[in-house]
């Protein structure tokens, strides 16, 4: 016993292990609180974030030029495909605008200021990504100064990619929907079917097939492959109607009820340079 305690280095290592375990337990337990990170940590992150802009600038430049070259190669093929969709789109857009205007008028008559579907957008660029893939975090270049709050949903292109988990002054962290983290905050989603909607929760991500999983569905509405999945706006700071993807597989249980779905995400969850943070106008809980 005497000899064990006389070993100075061993004691230092033991104390270091205890401190690091304590810090880990602390940061995991306060992770979902609104007040984290503490001011000093936020300040440190801002300083690193500013330094990272200098490194990220050339890297993002390289990434952008690479993607422009590959875009150029795909252009012809894409162009023929897009031309076919374009005629349809013009009509849809006109109709959407008319309906939007009408909706606004009707809301005004009902004295409804904001509903679950109203939101504004904050555009941000991706600064960097956590090197180890355990947390699936991105760092984006907008923070509380731009009005970003914890738990806001984040989109890239036309689809949902994740959620803000930490906000600093000038940068914030986004946890992707692909995360394996068991304590991650999951999105409430709904499937739009021919006869009504079915509510559920995005429960995870299948890395092999690169598709999202959806479970805990509440109805036996006839869900078909190809139905649209979007956020339902129930709970948190997520508005209704953010596009997530399309149903690609329906798994039934013994009674024939749809229990879990596989959803093909609308965007490539590994490749994006610009993201949009969604700010719901109706205050959250």
């Amino acid at each position: 016993m005497q000899k064990f305690f006389s070993n100075r280095k061993l004691i230092i290592v033991l104390i270091a292990i205890i401190i690091s375990m304590g810090l880990m337990a602390f940061s995991v337990s306060v992770r979902n609180s609104d007040k984290t990170p503490p001011l000093i940590q936020r300040f440190g992150n801002d300083v690193v974030g500013v330094a990272d802009r200098v490194v990220a600038l050339p890297v993002n430049g390289v990434k952008n030029s690479f993607s422009s070259v590959s875009n150029l190669i795909n252009t012809y093929e894409e162009n023929t495909k897009l031309k076919a969709q374009l005629d349809d789109l013009a009509q849809t857009k006109t109709r959407a605008n008319t309906l939007k205007a009408e909706n606004k008028e009707l809301k005004k008559q009902l004295n409804l200021d904001n509903t679950l579907t109203d939101y504004t957008k904050i555009n941000a660029a991706v600064l960097t990504r956590s090197p180890a893939n355990w947390q699936n975090n991105l760092v984006i270049n907008k923070g509380s100064l731009a009005g970003i709050k914890k738990n806001m949903p984040v989109m890239a292109g036309s689809g949902l990619i994740g959620r803000v988990v930490e906000v600093n002054g000038t940068n914030s962290k986004v946890e992707l929907v692909t995360t394996d983290n068991q304590s991650a905050n999951r999105f409430a989603a709904e499937v739009v079917t021919a006869n009504g909607t079915a509510n559920g929760i995005m429960t995870g991500y299948d890395k092999q097939s690169r598709q999202l999983k959806m479970g805990q569905l509440n109805t036996d509405a006839k869900i078909k492959v190809g139905d649209t999945v979007q956020t339902s706006g129930l709970g948190g700071l997520t508005p209704r109607g953010l596009y997530i993807g399309k149903v690609s597989k329906v798994k039934h249980d013994n009674y024939g009820l749809a229990l879990s779905l596989t959803v093909k995400p609308a965007v490539n969850l590994d490749d994006f340079t610009v993201v949009t943070v969604i700010k719901r106008q109706l205050a959250g809980d």
Binding site: I19, S20, G22, M24, G44, Q135, K173
Partner: peptide, 21 residues
């Protein structure tokens, strides 16, 4: 290590312990 933890993952104590080790 502390900066690494704080900036990339937000979970303190992982690399802060391992880099000196």
């Amino acid at each position: 290590g502390l900066l690494y933890d704080s900036f990339y993952t937000g979970v303190l104590g992982v690399y802060m312990f391992l880099f000196p080790l």
